[in-house]
Structure formats: C-alpha cells, structure tokens
Write a protein that binds this DNA or RNA. Structure first.
Lengths: 152, 152
DNA sequence: GCAGTTATTGCGACTTGTTGCAATAAGTTG
DNA sequence: CAACTTATTGCAACAAGTCGCAATAACTGC
C-alpha cells in the first residue's frame, strides 16, 4: 500500500459522511482499491473482478452506481479512451486534473500544472461554473497522428 | 432541412473521401441525420431508430462504428451526460467546441467563444497537441448546485 | 465499364452499463 | 441500545456498446 493511503482513505470516508452519504462495505472497498491504484486508469473489468473477489459478490450495478457517485463528488473522473473503453481514475486531491486525448490513436496524456492554472484562470471570466474540483478534457490530435495525416 | 445543409453534406462527403474513407449508404444517411439535427445532442436511440427505419435495416454495429469514425475525424463529439447517457453532437465547423458539464445535476452548457479562444491560446504553450478540431470538456459544479451543497 | 483490392457491412455472440423494485443495513434519535 | 428512517444493496430483466468473421460493395486502375 502506498504510504499515506490509509490516511487518505479515512479522509475520503469522512468526506463521504460530510456529504450525507453512507459508508458501506462496497464503498469502503471500492474507494480503497481506487486509492491503491491512484496512479493508473482502471478498467471496469479489473474493478469488477476485484470487487467480486473481495466481497462475497458485489453486484455489478452497485459498483457502477458507486463509481457514478464518486464521480459526481469529484473523487474520480471517468473517460472513454478510443481502443480501451471507459477508464476510471482518481483525481480528488490532484493538483492537475486535465487530460489530452488523441482522437486518432487514443493515446492520452496528463497535462502540466502551468496549463491547468491558465485554464482555471480563463474560467474566472465565466460565471456560474465552479473552479473547485474542476476536470478538463481536451480531445484533439497528437503531433504524431497529425504528422501521419495532416488533415486531421 | 436547414438551408445550406445540403452543401455541408456534400462537403463532408468530400472530406470523408479526402481521408480515404468510402462513402456508403449508412454513412450518407447518418451524416445527413446528424447535420439535420446539428443543433441538438442526439441520443443513440433516436439515431438507431432513424437508421433502422430509413435503411432496410442498418446494423447496430455499423452505426456505432461510424459514429466512432466520425468522432475520430472531428465531425462529431460524443459525451456522457449524467442522467441521460451518451449523446452525439455535430461539431465539425463550429467555432466553439467546448462544453461545461455539471457533475451534480448533469446540466450542460455550451461555452462562449472568448473563453474557447483563451484556452486555445493557452494550448499554444503545449507542444504535441493540435489546436485544429480541438474539443474541450469541463466537468465541475454549476452555480446552482454549488449553492445547494457548498462542499461540492 | 470490368476486374481487382480492400474498407465496410451485417450478423451473431458477447460484454458493458442501466433501471425498477423489494430487502437490507447505515446512521439517527430518544 | 432499540426503534425508526431512508440510502444503498442485490437481483433480474433489459438496453447500450463491442468484436470477429464471412460476404458485400466502394474505389482504383486499366
């Protein structure tokens, strides 16, 4: 387990409770699994397999519902990557929460903090949308794909 | 039909050919349908129903494959909206191609051009990602939801 | 316009994701 | 800590989306 993960886990449980959400076995487990793999984009398959194996059978629908809940709370961000389906990633206390996805090859990159700050700053002009827990996704063409097919 | 849509349709077919893609009946039809409803976010159900009704039975998988193709080429952008599932929207020659999605209530807004330009400008600093055909999606909390639940 | 090449289609089987509902258990109150 | 309230679960049926493969039909060049 990543050092400090235990603390984060407790923090997130507290956060859930502060949002009037109940802390249930499936939620504890799912949260722990996401935290233990916070550096990766998780596929639904590995999540479901883990949940099914750990719990005496966590139902598919509960897992989906909780992923949706966590996303709504800004704990994770789900994204569809061309070629590898939907992925779930921990973002809660991340400084940088934006992604570049190449529409052509499906490769994704995490952005750098400087750009994220600039985008946040640009958003200051837009009223009605919160900067807190903001995620930004860019869809475009990476340099490699643009080279191969200049029109794209 | 929207005035000028016919021209756009021809343009897009030409664009497809320029990309070495073949122009088939399902593609013509799907493209036309998307163009005729370019001001809305289409659900997969209405797309499939239309395709199935028009063609002597356009297969589900072909529709999905073509939607994916069109998205890769930057003709449409698909997005998952909480509460209403995945939606498909025409973006090809749009000046503004970014969306604000509220994680809490699922409401979405189109952004204004000024912000889009600023984000594009910020992207100039990032090498390796094309500005052409860029789409940007913001996930956050709208003012209304933020008011109801300040922590979000 | 015909033959050849190969992208695209349709099909079937499968995986992923959603929804309504009754049963359960988390949190709360006295 | 027992009773209460209601969010969450598991289940089952369904809808949405994916994949491999053989058949088809767009495009190319002659």
């Amino acid at each position: 387990m990543i050092p400090g993960a235990m603390k984060k886990h407790q923090d997130l449980l507290a956060f859930l409770r502060s949002q009037k959400m109940r802390v249930t076995p499936p939620r504890r487990l799912l949260l722990q699994f996401i935290l233990d793999h916070s550096n990766r984009r998780l596929s639904i398959r590995e999540i479901q397999e883990f949940m099914g194996a750990q719990l005496r059978k966590a139902d598919r629908s509960s897992v989906y519902r909780n992923l949706e809940t966590f996303e709504r709370l800004g704990i994770i961000q789900s994204l569809s990557f061309p070629g590898e389906g939907r992925r779930y990633q921990y973002v809660f206390d991340r400084k940088v929460r934006h992604f570049y996805i190449c529409r052509s090859c499906g490769k994704a990159n995490r952005g750098d903090e400087r750009l994220f700050r600039r985008v946040e700053a640009a958003l200051k002009d837009i009223h009605g949308f919160a900067k807190a827990n903001l995620s930004v996704v860019f869809y475009g063409a990476c340099s490699k794909c643009r080279k191969n097919s200049p029109t794209a």
